[in-house]
């Protein structure tokens, strides 16, 4: 086998299906950071986020014979991390508030320091993002940070494409309104 010849995600999956452990490690290294931060945004606990990612890769390995990945491997991994993160919350009976009416993703509440936005922090888009509801924020980041298409985001979060579209619009709208309200708009005109 030529080194470096089989590098695309689907090729890595094919190698994993054929019991090649090195391919699993390559895939892990490639997506670890993105996945662990995605999980952290749902679970708000570093150790749990790390466990979730480990579990996802162990599961991927165990199920390798039955893997049926047709689409973007990255989107598949994100979907697995989302489901495992939500299960982690349920199984470990974490101190997050559970609300039947809220969207699944919002079972985890935001930590208090995340809600706190001081004016000087508003220059920072990361702080600005915290005015958004967890689902809107997650949708926005999957697009902006991970470059997923609307269709992929809809698949990962089990939302309709129309909902993704309106969440994206809402994110822009709320962030701009917040800037304007706080009279910090000039910063963005520079």
């Amino acid at each position: 086998m030529k080194a470096g010849a089989l590098q695309t995600d689907l090729q890595l999956i094919l190698r994993i299906k054929n019991d090649d452990e090195r391919a699993l490690k390559i895939l892990f290294d490639k997506y670890f950071s993105a996945l662990v931060h995605f999980s952290f945004r749902i679970t708000h606990q570093k150790t749990i986020a790390e466990e979730v990612v480990a579990d996802v890769f162990i599961e991927l390995w165990k199920r390798r014979a039955y893997l049926d990945i047709t689409h973007q491997v990255k989107a598949y991994l994100f979907t697995m991390v989302k489901n495992t993160s939500l299960n982690a919350g349920r199984n470990q009976k974490l101190h997050y508030s559970f609300s039947d009416s809220s969207l699944e993703l919002e079972v985890f509440s935001q930590s208090p320091e995340e809600k706190l936005i001081s004016e000087e922090n508003l220059q920072d888009i990361d702080q600005l993002l915290n005015i958004l509801s967890p689902t809107v924020k997650t949708v926005f980041l999957l697009s902006r940070e991970e470059g997923f298409t609307y269709a992929e985001i809809a698949g990962i979060l089990k939302l309709s494409i129309k909902t993704v579209e309106s969440h994206m619009g809402k994110a822009l709208k709320l962030m701009r309104e917040t800037i304007q309200k706080s009279n910090l708009g000039e910063y963005y005109h520079k």
Partner: peptide
């Protein structure tokens, strides 16, 4: 500009090699 503002969201430190140990142990 809002759209293009750089994100620093991945600021937390995670240790990939520690996490992968768990994976390779399971394998």
């Amino acid at each position: 500009q809002l759209w293009n503002s750089p994100l620093k969201i991945k600021e937390h430190k995670f240790d990939p090699s520690l996490v992968y140990t768990k994976v390779s142990d399971a394998i």
